[in-house]
């Protein structure tokens, strides 16, 4: 599989940003989880989002593939705005892969079946084709020997790599990561981050909620700092880490590093 096949968003005008958020807001009851969030993620770039617990990072990323529904503002993915229309949501879910903090692998299916299920039911691929694609991606995340194991038989790091492969099987043009390494034991963090770095190097558009600042420094095009449902500031990793504009960002970063 070429990287072109992995990252290309078919039928989208060149120059269209992969993701654009304009004044997005989301409340749970009277609690404002997101307020006035705007950001643009260009195709092939990597956005890292950090911020304290409860600042709305997960809510933001989950609005992009409509696991949460925003109340106001506009979210555009590959030029298509997210609305209630079911056809749109389908298209977006096909274009956007997601990796969760707790992997969310299907425990009753083998690793290979985890990777082929949605290919068969959503992409309508044949059993043979789906298996071939799944095996190719399991190679890519360096875990092909576990194809016939069940998730419970794998370490956390291995499970997360399978989850990445499972998402990639759908040929997404955008990948969302919500704290993919924070449920892992320290010695397994590296294998997952390495997988993500390789994905970034292949040109995948990524939005990644993480507190792994080494990873951010290495691959991020932009780092956004969130607090209280707002993006406080957003900049290249060099600038944000060396000269944060806001006191709050400075404090958060220094807490992370020490």
């Amino acid at each position: 599989m070429t990287s072109e096949q992995l990252t290309g968003a078919a039928g989208v005008a060149p120059g269209t940003p992969a993701i654009q958020l304009v004044d997005v807001a989301k409340s749970y009851g009277s609690f404002k989880a997101l307020q006035g969030v705007s950001m643009t993620v260009e195709r092939g770039s990597r956005m890292v989002i950090c911020g304290p617990s409860g600042s709305g990072k997960s809510t933001l990323i989950r609005c992009i593939n409509r696991l949460e529904i925003h109340d106001a503002g506009a979210i555009t993915v590959n030029g298509a705005e997210l609305t209630d229309q079911i056809v749109r949501i389908d298209r977006i879910r096909r274009d956007v892969g997601m990796v969760f903090q707790h992997f969310n692998l299907f425990p009753h299916l083998t690793v290979l079946q985890n990777c082929t299920l949605a290919q068969r039911w959503v992409r309508r691929r044949s059993h043979r084709e789906a298996s071939d694609i799944a095996m190719a991606l399991l190679e890519r995340v360096r875990i092909p020997e576990k194809a016939s194991s069940y998730p419970a038989e794998l370490s956390g790091g291995q499970q997360q790599r399978v989850a990445i492969a499972r998402a990639l099987c759908m040929n997404p043009s955008i990948m969302l990561f919500d704290e993919p390494t924070s449920a892992l034991d320290p010695e397994m963090v590296k294998e997952v981050l390495d997988t993500m770095v390789r994905l970034a190097e292949d040109g995948m558009t990524m939005i990644c909620v993480t507190h792994e600042m080494g990873f951010a420094r290495q691959v991020a095009s932009q780092v956004a700092f969130m607090e209280g449902g707002k993006v406080i500031e957003s900049n290249t990793p060099e600038r944000l880490f060396s000269t944060p504009a806001h006191e709050r960002t400075k404090r958060f970063l220094s807490n992370l590093l020490h």
Partner: peptide, 24 residues
């Protein structure tokens, strides 16, 4: 998380119910 993992892959509600929720 199981339903969300499946939804994020583009599976529909009834597919999620039959393929993911029911067997578990």
């Amino acid at each position: 998380g199981q339903r969300e993992g499946a939804a994020a892959l583009g599976l529909h509600r009834w597919q999620i119910f039959i393929l993911i929720t029911m067997p578990q």
